[in-house]
Amino acid sequence: MASAVALDARGRAFAAAPKKLKPGMAAPSFIRTGLDGKPVDLSRYKGKVLLIDFWASWCAPCIIAIPHFRAWQGQWGERGLQVIGISMDDAASDARAAAARLKVNYPVVMGDVKLADQYGGILGLPVEMLVGRDGRIIAIWQGETPPETIEKAVRAALG
């Protein structure tokens, strides 16, 4: 697979293209305010298995996946699973309405270009990332992924 080529408006190489994340790398930390107004500090979840979900309210595959994430959070939260949603909606109100409609039971923050860059570029949705208890990325899924695939990896990470 070729690496991404980034050019500026004059066609010159653009040096600051985000570095792609891969399994084994540390999950980038961030501190954001959640849709509920509470702070979400990724570093505070160390020791947990994290399922980070980049989504948007208009993204059908994202919306299909969320009830699974909600169920897993309820089922496996006490075993150490923590789902975190990062909405790429333009408006927080859209994300908030969708999260309420879907009865999301885990923290959701608003994403932006800076956060997307930290995570290697979010150039399509959905993107899910599974992070182990050691803070290192176990798996990354881009696009519509069978829930069974993610569930199997989550179960394995929980041990």
């Binding site: 070729a2 690496s3 991404a4 080529v5």
Partner: peptide, 11 residues
């Protein structure tokens, strides 16, 4: 699939 995989990653 998406812009990342089908355009950016293709170089």
């Amino acid at each position: 699939e998406n812009f990342g995989q089908d355009w950016v990653d293709k170089g």
